[in-house]
Amino acid sequence: MLALVLAGLAMTSMAQQTTPATVSVNAKGDDVRSVIHDLFQQAGKNYVLKPGVRFVLYLSLDKVEFDEALTIICKNASLKYEVQNGIYHISNAPVKVEEPKPVIEEKKPEEKKPEPKQPEKVAPPAKFVKRLPTSILAKRITTRYSKTDLRKVMDTLADQSGAPIEVAKDVPAYKLDAFLINTSLKYALDQITKATKLEYHFTDEGTILISPAKSAQSVRESDEKKG
């Protein structure tokens, strides 16, 4: 009978030893150092708290295993612990500093500078040709001049016919007797240029030009060289 009682007590003692101790924590803005002290008091364990541990806890743990409670508290307060000879050494966990990732600069494609535009070649404006109609030679004119300068006679012909008449600079200042009564401009020009060895032609500028005849000009230049 005594043996059975002793066996029952032994089994009860073993069950108590295998059942892990539980703790309860209720912190409302409490200092982590006070919470840890209370935790180890409940578990009946020894601990050493390293200097510099500071944190405010807000948590509630009811009947939680000691190791789990300690792990939760350390995780929230950024702490770590080591067990040496049955004593818990608690300190701040090292702060992980992430190394900055190397920044790889993407090479931007070089911008091609626009080539300077070559100035467009502008074609010279086409020469506007405005010749007088040959019908203007049929205009009627009348002159009564005696020993009058050639250029004055031509001005009169131009005024009466409406045809601009020019006299070249190398034409001498001939004096003319011009009695032309109701004749055509063509007849007047033919008679005057024949008598003075000149010629006339229509220009691209819309005028009639009086100039030395080519044959007469060649003879005059030859005489000037001989002289």
Rank of each mutant, 00 (worst) to 15 (best):
M1Y: 10
A10R: 06
T12Q: 12
T18Q: 09
T19G: 03
A21R: 10
T22M: 10
T22F: 02
V23T: 01
V25P: 08
N26K: 10
A27G: 07
D30Y: 08
D31T: 03
I36E: 06
L39V: 02
Q41P: 02
L49W: 03
K50R: 04
V53C: 09
V56N: 11
L57P: 08
L57R: 04
D62G: 09
E68N: 15
A77N: 05
G86T: 09
S91I: 06
P94Y: 04
E98L: 15
E99I: 15
P100N: 05
P102G: 05
I104M: 10
K112Q: 12
E115H: 12
E115I: 12
P116E: 14
K121R: 11
K121C: 07
V122R: 06
V122N: 10
P124W: 04
V129D: 11
P133N: 03
T134L: 12
T134E: 08
I136A: 07
A138K: 13
R140G: 10
I141Q: 01
T142A: 10
R144D: 14
K147Y: 09
T148V: 08
D149P: 00
M154N: 00
D159A: 08
S161M: 00
A163N: 10
A163T: 06
P164G: 13
K169H: 06
K169G: 11
A173C: 01
N182G: 09
T183V: 11
Y187L: 14
A188I: 14
Q191C: 08
A195Q: 04
T196L: 09
K197L: 05
K197F: 02
L198S: 02
E199Y: 04
D204M: 07
I208Y: 04
I208V: 14
I210E: 05
S215W: 13
Q217S: 10
Q217V: 10
S218P: 02
S218C: 06
K225C: 07
G227V: 02
